[in-house]
Amino acid sequence: MNPRVEGQQTAATPAVNSGARVISVGGGKGGVGKSFMVANLATCLARAGYRVIVVDCDLEGANLHTVVGAHAPVSSLADFVAQRVDDLGKLVFDTPIEGLQLIAGTHANLSDAQPTHLRRVRLMRALRRLQADFVILDLGAGVHSAVLDYFLVADDGLVVCSPEPTSVENAYTFLRAAFYRRMRLAMVGHGVRKLVTTAMDQRNEHGLRTPLDLLREIEAIDSADGARFVQTMREFRPRVVINNVRTAEDIKLGFAVCSVCRKYFGIDAEYLGYVNQDDDVRLSVASRKPLVEYRPKSDASIYLQRIARKLAGGRPSSFQAAAPNRVASPSGAPTPAAGSPTA
């Protein structure tokens, strides 16, 4: 398994890479299935003919290499963050899945400093310049500013949530933190800055209760700057995925969470999809294959493919003459005599 050296592709490489589409997968709580989602969605996209690189940004619980069936990494994102390696392309490894590559994460050395905001900006630029159609980031748990920045910089930010109160609470905590982080980064004009500070203040002197109230207040005071700022905030469009569903009630949770986001944050969250809880996931991990490879006809795999198709949105691959295949076929079509898929 060799790191692929950037710039070595021949005829397949287009003269201009329009830039990889960056998808980040976060959502607070550990164990909700972020890495599972990254590995399986990436596999769906790779199978459809896209070039995909998954990046393990979870410096504390890095395990994405295992989920995609790759070996323990010899180098990782931490080397780029600590400036031991300057070319991010040198950290890209192949996986057993064609079209799917990996930038691994390893537990950061204690001596490694957390990346500064500037270094993060540099990393994000480098991510977009990778030779791929899709770059999918597996974010760690928690609401560290690094996690939030990776989430916010992405073209699509997925929030993974399980149908459990703790997970829902974490998802909101994550969204709230991301919302305010985005606000901080987008702040223009002192009037706005002051108001944001007020809102962050627990005592809420202006009677601001929700982020939505805050946006309204800002819209009311300033003209051009305020409007531009509010516009920026409105474009924040997280996508919600509910993982581990068991019942119809669980599936409705995604709708409810998006509605609450609209009524509380004033942001237009989108319910992207859901994936059921499937006991075969454990076996697929043991066999070091993503579920969509291990049990392609299972309900969970079909749900994952639907989500992948939404993410792909019919985008052409920049690395092939032919257009990519549709992300799998409408895979609800089981062959009548075959029965449920067997290993």
Partner: peptide, 11 residues
């Protein structure tokens, strides 16, 4: 989504 005890309201 907004019934009493709905998980989506939590927190």
């Amino acid at each position: 989504a907004y019934t009493d005890g709905s998980m989506a309201l939590y927190s």
